[in-house]
């Protein structure tokens, strides 16, 4: 084994993420692909592609840690670690000043409070409801006929956001549609929806205590409207890392590095 590397894989409900680190914890490469059915095949294909890009073979992976909802289905993993631990680890590695991590993924949102050593002191996750998640935004963007990538920017254009009172994804959709039918501007409905998701997520974060510095991870961190709404409603600066979707996979790779170093 000439140059061992360390693999972290995060199999989520909507996307699969992978991060490869070298022996010095330096990033070799990372990638994000849609999960497809079950996520396992997508994960295997992604890992194969990343290895190829780096000129590595599977034998050179010294240790693999898998996380995310599909974690039990990834056969070649040495270990599985929860998303909570992985996101915390990844976020703390990127920014040791972080004390609160909010992760908003496709199907769940979670908040973690870290201590000065980066250990998870407390965490909370959404339960049995997709209202504070990426899926909520996807459904709403589709209802408003806006590409998901532009949804956040559209919300930022609003000057008179409407109030969306329903916290249920399905009912909020009908509420949004009825606003549109009454002639409310699209950006005002979009802004209302972004405020709704922010208030939902902050309610979750309040359970663990929103201590500065706050980092937002997960695919929804790419949405500027959500970041702005979270920041405004919480009166906190929200840090978004360069590639927020891969923070969990990075944490998994760091666990792999820790375990497989020798």
């Amino acid at each position: 084994m000439t140059k061992p590397c360390f693999l972290g894989v995060d199999i989520g409900s909507l996307t699969v993420k992978a991060v490869l680190l070298d022996a010095g914890q330096r990033l070799l490469t990372r990638g994000v692909v849609p999960a497809g059915y079950g996520g396992q095949e997508a994960a295997e294909a992604l890992v194969a592609r990343l290895l190829r890009e780096c000129g590595l073979t599977p034998d050179e992976i010294a240790y693999t840690v898998v996380t995310g909802y599909g974690r039990v289905r990834f056969a070649t993993a040495d270990e599985e670690v929860s998303e909570i631990s992985c996101h915390a680890r990844g976020a703390f590695h990127l920014c040791p000043a972080v004390r609160t991590v909010i992760d908003i993924g496709g199907q769940d949102s979670k908040a973690m409070r870290l201590d000065a050593q980066g250990r998870v002191v407390d965490f909370a996750m959404n339960d049995k409801c997709a209202a504070g998640t990426g899926r909520f935004l996807e459904v709403m963007a589709a209802a408003l006929d806006v590409p998901i990538e532009q949804f956040g920017a559209l919300a930022l254009q609003s000057e008179h956001p409407v109030a969306i009172s329903s916290t249920c994804t399905v009912f909020a959709e009908s509420e949004a549609i009825s606003h549109i039918a009454r002639g409310v501007a699209k950006q005002d409905v979009a802004a209302g929806l972004h405020q709704a998701i922010a208030s939902r997520v902050l309610g979750l974060a309040a359970r663990v205590g929103l201590e500065a510095e706050v980092m937002l991870t997960g695919g929804v961190a790419l949405n500027v409207g959500v970041v702005a709404a979270l920041s405004r409603q919480s009166n906190q600066r929200i840090t978004v890392p360069a590639d927020p979707q891969t923070v969990g996979a990075l944490g998994a790779a760091l666990y792999a590095w820790h375990k497989g170093r020798r």
């Binding site: 929860s82 909570i84 250990r119 339960d127 049995k128």
Partner: peptide, 21 residues
């Protein structure tokens, strides 16, 4: 009202935090 996967994920995360302590 019981979601096995969601419950397992929380238990795993909780036991990991206990292990760190």
């Amino acid at each position: 009202a019981f979601a096995a996967e969601a419950v397992k994920t929380r238990i795993q995360a909780f036991m990991e935090t206990l292990a760190e302590r």
